[in-house]
Design a protein around this nucleic acid. Sequence first.
RNA 1: GGAGUUGGCAGGAUGAUCGCUCCUCUGCCCAAAAGAUUGGCGGAGGGGAGGAAAGUCCGAGCUCCAUCGGGCAGGGUGGUCGCUAACGGCGACGCGGGGUGACCCGACGGAAAGUGCCACAGAAAAUACACAGCCUCCAUUGUUUGCUUGUGUAAACAAGCAAAGGGGGUAAAAAAGGCGAGGUAAGAGCUCACCGCUCCUCUGGUGACAGGGGAGGCAUGGUAAACCCCACCCGGAGCAAGGCCAAAUAAGAGGGGAAUUCCGUUCCCUGCGAGGGACGGAUACGGGAUGCCCAUCCCGCGCUAUGACCCUCGGGUUGGCCGCUUGAUCCGUCAGAGCAAUUUGGCGGACAGAUAGAUGAUCAUCAAAUACAGAACUCGGCUUAUGGCCAACUCCAGCU
RNA 2: UGGGGGAUGGUGUAACUGGUAACACGCCUGACUCUGGAUCAGGUAAGUGGAGGUUCGAGCCCUCCUCCCCCAG
Length: 143
Amino acid sequence: MESSFSFKKAERLRRKVDFERIFSQGRRFRESHFRFYVLDRTLKSLPCPGKRTGPARIIAGAGEKENRIGFIVGKRAVDKAAVRRNRVRRHLKEAYRLNKSRLKAGRDLVVVAEKGAVGLSFPEVQRELLQLFGKAGLILEDE
RNA sequence: GGAGUUGGCAGGAUGAUCGCUCCUCUGCCCAAAAGAUUGGCGGAGGGGAGGAAAGUCCGAGCUCCAUCGGGCAGGGUGGUCGCUAACGGCGACGCGGGGUGACCCGACGGAAAGUGCCACAGAAAAUACACAGCCUCCAUUGUUUGCUUGUGUAAACAAGCAAAGGGGGUAAAAAAGGCGAGGUAAGAGCUCACCGCUCCUCUGGUGACAGGGGAGGCAUGGUAAACCCCACCCGGAGCAAGGCCAAAUAAGAGGGGAAUUCCGUUCCCUGCGAGGGACGGAUACGGGAUGCCCAUCCCGCGCUAUGACCCUCGGGUUGGCCGCUUGAUCCGUCAGAGCAAUUUGGCGGACAGAUAGAUGAUCAUCAAAUACAGAACUCGGCUUAUGGCCAACUCCAGCU
RNA sequence: UGGGGGAUGGUGUAACUGGUAACACGCCUGACUCUGGAUCAGGUAAGUGGAGGUUCGAGCCCUCCUCCCCCAG
């Protein structure tokens, strides 16, 4: 298995309907500074993207076994200053990028930052994110 | 050494590993008859946040909408001259004010065109009037009215009141400009010196204004970031502007056409809902009213209208593409114009374009580096946030 | 990102054309009652989000900041 650390556009959630589907149908977890939503695309693959009846590219792009993830760092909930919000999001992206090879595939994930997330250092963010992945049962067992 | 004023500077660097985005060149794959092209996965090279990117306070470019004319109105600016694409910005100068000083600050046109306001206090608040206290005969000149009381035969004298003149504990602001002297019964530009004011005139300056001379003895309280007057300027909205393509859906518009309903209030009936009544409004032919020309008002001229059903066109939504970054651009240097802002020309160099939204993470070294803070159509300014460094100048203290 | 609105006692709202910041619900004390509620009487509490300016004098007028809310995908 090639343990690529790259993190391209196709691995990010970019569509409003994707976010809404995960919020309405996904499972939810919490740590002290982040909320976490998971939706397993492999279980309900047949009806899930339907009903939109859009072009076939939507199904094709999401139909692979790749994980997709989105990060939400709100202005109202987290911090007004754009610099500090960017720092939180970059920490989250880096923590996911370095650890994503250890996760089960075929899921859509969303991480929402909350009030106290601004003051955290990168190791603290990485530890909390891994705790969330563990709670959700996403970490592969094989050594 | 301390305190301060003004102007300027950079906004961590280097290396290693793992990553993101855009552009150029290039290899492979998929779809297709083929090619262009688009998409996916790679390779090489290159670019990748700020002085404030911020606040959105002004000014523009750009785009769409509106635009038949006029009036009234609304908003903005406010010393002068210039600079600029434009500005409420900048420069120089004038005037006024602050600071021992370097230097700084000023919405800085008009209150004898009009209107409004000026609480409390005070005699009085825009008019110089009433009123309280005080002075008015002794001497020089002239004049002196009425009433009451007292003395006296009377004439007359004395006292008081009225008439006449001056004046102002207060107040943010005060009038016979301020202050000092003379003057007087007490007092007033009544007189005089200095300062100020008004008018006339001369000189200098493009101008704001400055300086000189003469006359008047002084008449015009404050407020225009109150209405207003004067001069100048101003259509509206904003890239989520706006345009194109595809998909599914069927709102709206136009036409036809028959008919009389439709909407709102939640007052009444009903347990609630549905429904009905009442009230108000809209609609038929006309009128009126409303709407459309930036908002409001008026005039002239013009246009439009309720709605089941049928036909035609195809709004908005979702996804993608364009707009989208090289332009009144910025920097360096040389030469020219100008006190300067700025500008002309030559040479060289630089310049992000994302769309769930790119600059990061970890480590090492440098004495330390986490100040404020992140592009979203683009420029020119202003304002606000901010740790540090440098230069010039000012004041104070000490030493030589 | 662009556009619009607001901030006044603990809470919800007033303050006309600039002239002593008002009202209700609260809260506290007292009366009434065996006690509580209701009622009555009295009191407490903001100097108007912050900083400057205009004016004799700003909640109100002007400028700049801070915070909150709404609209447009």
